[in-house]
Amino acid sequence: MEATQFGEPPLFGLYHPATGDRPRGRGVLICPPIAHEHIRAHRALRFLSVQLAREGFDVLRFDYFGVGDSAGDSEEAQVAHWQADVGAAAKELRALAGIESLAVLGVRFGATLAATATGLPAVEHLVLWDPVLDGQQYLLRMEEMHRAMLVDSRSFQHPRQERPGPGLLGFPFGPSLRAGISACDLRGLHRWPSGRVTVVKGGDASKVEPFVKELRQRGISATLRQASTAVDWEDRDAVGRSLTAGDVQGAILASLLEGRS
């Protein structure tokens, strides 16, 4: 694993070069979730990166502007900036690994960003783990969780009356960032960065089945891969805890290996 900083202002990334006996000459760019989900997923994505590198992939996971270890205050984050960050990270991975062939794995809103990224070179395969399909619903749900937290005696000794502000579950979501997230709706997305999309869903997949069907109708080679480990991203008690990917990790690996040598 090697740390890398790229772009200006610099984004932080961790590069896992292929370590297996059979390097595949193929890169996997990991686009993590945002905000509290970013922190929850860190450990699972580290394990996944190590496993993918062992399987011969060159892997880059990185933090968007204003997220994790990258430059920028959380208050400055913008969706358009993040979408461009995905493109910049893809180019960084291709340069680091000296490869052309690229798959992108996006997790939650990271999946949304991967699908709507700007400046992205050709992507052979887009893998979306529990993608946020509807940005507006995503924000509404976070707002509900935030309101519930303020009156939860396990968090606060006394119910809190918060001053009006941008805070949602510990992170600032200003008007511009909220507008950018609300505008994201993968169900209405016409230009996809890859002709091959796999949606990986842990637990009940009924909500994403119509989305996968719709992709197929648009001529995209779309696959739904189910796993039994359901990550409850909307569990308020889990905010701040590391998640366990369980067999989702295997499902992602199998998706990336499928039809490839």
Partner: peptide
């Protein structure tokens, strides 16, 4: 802080 990586809860260590 616990199992949270170096950025800290809600990125508190970065800030």
């Amino acid at each position: 802080a616990g199992l949270v990586h170096r950025v800290g809860p809600f990125r508190v260590s970065v800030d």
